[in-house]
Nucleic acid binder design. Structure first.
Lengths: 205, 205
DNA sequence: TAGATTGTTAATCGATTAACAATC
DNA sequence: TAGATTGTTAATCGATTAACAATC
């Protein structure tokens, strides 16, 4: 049985993909692990190990066929399977992410947002509807969304996570600076922007 | 000589701080590493080791004095030293972060934003001025900002990073999905929202 | 005192790097 | 062929966990 990819390797795959996609056509057909490594400031063995988890294989002496490598990474990251996501909470951040075009690079379609504010419900942001959080279950069924992004204040995040878990969301990207407790089978990853910046502030001291 | 904190421990300190701050007053004076650990889903020895990097010390049998622990974390994270940050790029994300109130929990003040769009220059977002990116040097000197958040498109991020490095910014939080190259002495950390969501999508498969 | 919890040292675990044979 | 690069195995490094003495 092949070994499953560790999460830490998985997290680097989008980095490789972004880099490879950014290369100009003139870069040529092949690219070596060493070239990728030096562009990204990492070790070349690590690059090869990470890439080995995908279906990509390189050729000794020349490296990897760039287009094949991109395709292998896209397949591994399921970029070709369309997946729907929803955003909960249309404050500044939710609004920004609803309008952000970068998700489609990974086959992710942000189809709708949910909020409790009656002023916002029924409006559209970036052509996406803002729906009533109380209709979450029906709304999610309709859109078949397995992914959710929590952009509500910390005080509301746990109850939102509970609702999302109940209606079948499988993974949550949480921007609220609070630890969420969710049932087994639901994955949560946190992004704490202020906390991350504070770490940088502490590092420069 | 005391050992320096590894970055991976440092990154957990804001998590502890957020948790401790969120506790109601009624929680009592003391809190144990075991209580923190189980609330955050981690090992209790790890919690103690992390906390030991700060000045916090606990008492056998009772745990840590909650207020002292908060104070020790705040001191370690320099929450009491006022630090200024700027945001480069007032698209949806830059706008959202300019209006976000969470930075002040860490003593960080986002004082201004910079953009190249003449339509935006001279306006105010959340009472913060949007300035001309070409006046970055003067603007940064005036505000004494050592921290910057890059919210421009990937294609512009490297040139922004070059400018920031040149005018003395010491740490950059980069939201553009591209690897930035900066001079030694400048720290960069990346947040790739779409990439992070794609990792979650891959994990649920 | 007995029991709970800290703080630290040793053991384990996992990730990265080094070494190197295979190969185009 | 010679040289460069892959893919893999072994060694190293660092982080987490286990064990346990100290102590309130």
């Amino acid at each position: 049985m092949e070994k499953e990819i560790p999460e830490i390797s998985l997290q680097r795959l989008p980095v490789y993909l972004n880099y490879l996609r950014s290369l100009p056509e003139s870069e040529g057909t092949y690219i070596s692990s060493g070239a990728i490594a030096s562009a990204l400031g990492m070790g070349e063995v690590l690059v090869r190990k990470d890439l080995a988890y995908t279906k990509a294989t390189g050729k000794p002496k020349v490296g990897y066929v760039r287009e094949e490598l991109v395709a292998a990474l896209e397949e591994f990251l399921c970029c070709n399977n369309k997946k729907n996501a929803v955003i909960i909470g249309i404050g500044g951040l939710g609004r920004a992410l609803l309008g952000y075009g970068g998700f489609k690079n990974y086959g992710i379609d942000v189809v709708a947002a949910f909020d409790k504010d009656e002023e916002k419900i029924g409006t559209f942001v970036a052509d996406k509807p803002v729906l009533d959080i109380n209709g979450l279950e029906g709304g999610l069924k309709e859109h078949a969304a397995q992914l959710a992004i929590i952009c509500v204040p910390a005080s509301a995040a746990q109850s939102v996570a509970d609702m999302l878990s109940k209606v079948g969301v499988k993974a949550i990207l949480n921007f609220a600076p609070v630890q969420l407790s969710v049932p087994k089978g639901v994955i949560v990853r946190n992004i704490d922007v202020a906390g991350s910046l504070s770490v940088l502030a502490a590092m420069i001291k």
